[in-house]
Design a protein around this nucleic acid. Structure first.
Lengths: 300, 300
DNA sequence: CAAAGCGGTGCAAAAAACGCACCGCTCTGG
DNA sequence: CCAGAGCGGTGCGTTTTTTGCACCGCTTTG
């Protein structure tokens, strides 16, 4: 679209880090691109790039402008899909940033169900830790985030929250498998695997363990991949920790999961949210409502 | 700004109702303007105007586009003032749509206090009934609305609410002046003035009166101007009804105001709000926070 | 039924954007 | 230490886009 041309060029320059590189990427002369940038800065009244010997970089004003650009082009995309909805077609794209735990069962089933009703809607799903998920929202790279215990929360608008007690996952013949509820100190006495420090499960375990001098999280295997940890249990008998929404026990009859005692470990909060103040595209907004009801159904 | 040119032309056409008239208004040839519109519709992929024999009119897609245009240019204005804030200057403009009751005392004092601290900030204040105030918000014509009991509320995001019991205002020597609290049936037995049907005070009085067959609101003088009604009391001894925030009794020692009994008449809700989901310009956002604290101080 | 007002179009002129060649500068690697 | 590479910026001729003018077909109106 014509009126977004300048913005696209500016985004290109930001991406490339220099005008010349950006010009090459976008099939235009460096001089022409340079003039576009300069003209825009003139009209805008403020410089938006710092000129460095090796290229250009956004200054604070440019950062603000970048946010406007992203908000603007995202809203324009929303407008287009809204207009195309007028003619009856139900189309759109939903982009989601989520914790790993949602990847194996919860999101696939929800998305499949939704696409069954609206086959024109496409999805992109990316695993992101809680910091990256928030950043993606504020960069308009994702519409929806579904993460455990996000950190900064200033641009994160919580649409739905759900408490999830941590479960200990072990083989059906594990000594602790007979208990309906597992005490943390018991679980930590057995060999266990755990995710690394930037995952909510680990943080909750650590804070709980720190309350008592006798307990410590000492994973024999540590990984950033929940997928790896889940499969590792098939080879060596270990306890792993996971939120129940990431579990589908019906498919693994040789594994059992038991909740950790809530008085030992605080439950994690699964938060469904979007960028504060943003108007989501119709498809994303609808799917978010679906997720809300799905989570409520799960809690009941 | 270059990238808003098309949008400005489109707004001009909407305002003028025909391409030729708009072209004249904006110092451009009709043919050039016509081609701009057509080119935009081509690139956009949808027509936005219905072509009528006497001119053009927005179609539904155009209505959606218009909203995007207004949101977009308002957000761009916000961006500019935010960037200019970076260089230290505190500037900006705050536009307010409010009920008449706020005009004489509350808003003037609040605005004066705010401008004492930020002399670079300008204001526009317009009295609007509760329907018009909401429309102004959604057209980005006002940043902030402060009204009693708005109606539709779908685009109105309530930032602060405050209950205001209706007061009966009368001369100090009025028979009811001795009571700390006035019953509605007593007040209605005396000659009274009242605002017309599209004001919250009147609606609340009517609904309260309807609960009893023995009461009716029969104003001897009816007006849309609170200013008129306030001054009319100086000429003929009548009860008028008003929210306390619109009163400043210290300046009129010969007048007294007594609250109507809450068990007779429901208090009105004064609502401070903005367009749902909109990011206000810095100046407006700050002033809104000031209003919130002022209202809280008033309630205490 | 003619005149006025509307959106749309062909064409030439005017304006804007572009590509090319080149400048001055800083950093870097032999 | 110095030459070369890479950067942003500029002058100029050329290309592309936009505009203005004249005019068309159409509908409404007095």
């Amino acid at each position: 679209m014509r009126h977004l041309k300048d913005f696209e060029f500016i985004e290109g320059v930001i991406r490339a880090g220099s005008i010349r590189k950006a010009a090459e990427d976008m099939n235009i002369t460096a001089s022409a691109l340079n003039r576009r940038i300069n003209r825009f800065e003139d009209e805008f009244g403020y410089e938006i790039f710092e000129r460095l010997p090796r290229g250009v970089r956004l200054n604070p004003a440019g950062e603000l402008l970048l946010h406007h650009i992203r908000a603007q082009s995202s809203d324009f995309a929303r407008l287009r899909s809204q207009v195309s909805d007028l003619s009856g077609v139900r189309r759109g794209h939903v982009s989601i940033a989520c914790s790993q735990a949602l990847l194996p069962y919860f999101l696939p089933s929800e998305i499949a169900r939704y696409r069954g009703e609206h086959p024109g809607v496409t999805f992109s799903v990316n695993a992101r830790d809680r910091v990256a998920a928030e950043r993606e929202l504020s960069e308009f790279a994702s519409d929806i985030a579904l993460v455990f215990e996000p950190l900064t929360m200033v641009d994160f608008e919580v649409v739905h929250a759900m408490a999830q007690p941590i479960h200990a996952v072990m083989r059906a013949d594990h000594p602790l498998a007979g208990q309906a509820e597992v005490r943390l100190r018991d679980a930590l006495r057995f060999p266990h695997v755990a995710p690394s420090e930037n995952f909510a499960v680990r943080v909750l375990l650590e804070t709980a363990a720190r309350r008592s001098s006798s307990m410590a999280v000492n994973p024999l295997v540590e990984s950033e991949s929940f997928d790896f940890m889940r499969h590792y249990g098939e080879w060596e008998d270990m306890i792993s920790f996971q939120f129940p929404i990431g579990l589908d026990m019906t498919r693994k009859p040789d594994l059992v999961s038991r909740p950790l005692a809530v008085r030992d470990v605080a439950p994690g909060n699964l938060l469904l949210g979007q960028l504060r103040g943003r108007t989501l595209p119709v498809a994303s907004a609808r799917f978010m409502r679906e997720l809300m009801t799905a989570l409520q159904r799960l809690a009941a």
